[in-house]
Design a protein around this nucleic acid. Structure first.
Lengths: 131, 131
DNA sequence: GTTAAATACGATAAATTTTATCGTATTTAA
DNA sequence: TTAAATACGATAAAATTTATCGTATTTAAC
């Protein structure tokens, strides 16, 4: 109920780690995984997804690694979550209306809850969360 | 990711249904389940739990049923969710600190997210959501 | 060139959580 | 006494999340 996923958690761990480094300095998936005792392959996937979304930058090759690329003040928590997990809704019926409930009477209530969660997450920036 | 459960959904359906009735009038689990095409036994459990938490009232016996008991304006969405699903946290580490991550660097960020979700849900009443 | 260390990513297995079912007990008005 | 309703624990099924595996790609150092 209202949980965030490990993928998001690992992404936050990595961001906070990279934030504590000098500007151009790289961090590897291995280094972060070891330091926080987190599965490297899963962390790598969070990193790859953040890289594809231009939040961080991936440098390949033998001395490669990752570093923060975007201005974290410009990314809301809602955008961050959606870049990692797709559209955000407390129930699936918020998007695809393949609802099985005939004459459903809670679509409006659920949308009201959704809208407020989204509004709240839009007002938090990735910077203020991880700083 | 940030989903509510069917238990909560069924509870909202039932509440909204009962709200549309006269004051003393009873609704049975069977009637609600049939009308919205929802599994009766599961709906019954949501009803029982709301009854135990004094949100609604259960009348046993052959002409029994349920009706709203509490003043829904006095119950926040946070309280409602917690009555049905227990303490609310986007990660379990928010409560039991059996966290496996050594030197975890995101406890503070996660608490910041939690606090804002809880604050937002505290500001919505069950009445305004289901009316 | 070759090699080593890093990212990239799809497929699939394992684990966990959520959802649903089953069976039985209890209550009470007709 | 019976029928219709709530009450609830145990367990099975389904769905989702989490983790692993295997392989490909990139590139700096030697």
């Amino acid at each position: 109920m209202l949980k965030i996923t490990r993928k998001v958690e690992y992404a936050l761990i990595a961001l906070k780690h990279m934030q504590s480094k000098e500007g151009g300095c790289l961090s590897t998936a291995k280094e972060i995984a070891y330091q926080y005792n987190v599965p490297q392959q899963l962390l790598a996937k969070s990193l790859q997804q953040m890289s594809k979304n231009h939040i961080i930058e991936a440098i390949k090759g033998i001395n490669g690694g990752y570093r923060i690329k975007a201005n974290l003040s410009g990314i809301s928590l809602k955008d961050f979550f959606e870049k990692l997990e797709g559209p955000l809704g407390v129930m699936d019926c918020y998007f695809d209306s393949e609802c099985q409930i005939s004459g459903c009477n809670v679509k409006a209530p659920i949308e009201r809850i959704n809208d407020n969660i989204r509004k709240m997450l839009s007002s938090m920036t990735l910077k203020e969360v991880t700083q």
